[in-house]
Amino acid sequence: MGNLLTPSSPPEHPQPDWGAIARDADFKALVSRKLKLVVPATIFFVVYYFALPVGVGWFPDFMKQKVWGNLNIAYLFALSQFFMAWVLAFIYVVAAAGWDRREHALLAKFGFNSKD
């Protein structure tokens, strides 16, 4: 019956009002900003990746064309996949740094900091 003995020992932080944060315009803006990058970027990398097996599987004559010395389109396209992945990851990280700033501002508005 601890509640009888200590009726008001407030926790260090109140339980967040999840609904209030979710309804906040800044929260909705944050989520839609994330989706605006993640959804097109995901579609892009899935299409770009599957273009490789589709290309070498059904258009081998095109993919075998030599571009530089002995290097053909098939090799360069496969190699480009690595750089595509790194570039998309870089774009994501730069965008996410902006999301982090908005997230801190949003949490501050509700009396929390990023350590909560």
Binding site: V38, A41, T42, F45, Y49, L52, P53, V56, A74, Y75, A78, Q81, F82, M84, A85, L88, A89, Y92
Partner: peptide, 16 residues
């Protein structure tokens, strides 16, 4: 080489 490409690209799903 073709076989190896997907092992890296897969991390975009993990990241995103």
């Amino acid at each position: 080489f073709l076989y190896s490409v997907g092992f890296l690209v897969a991390y975009l799903t993990v990241l995103f």
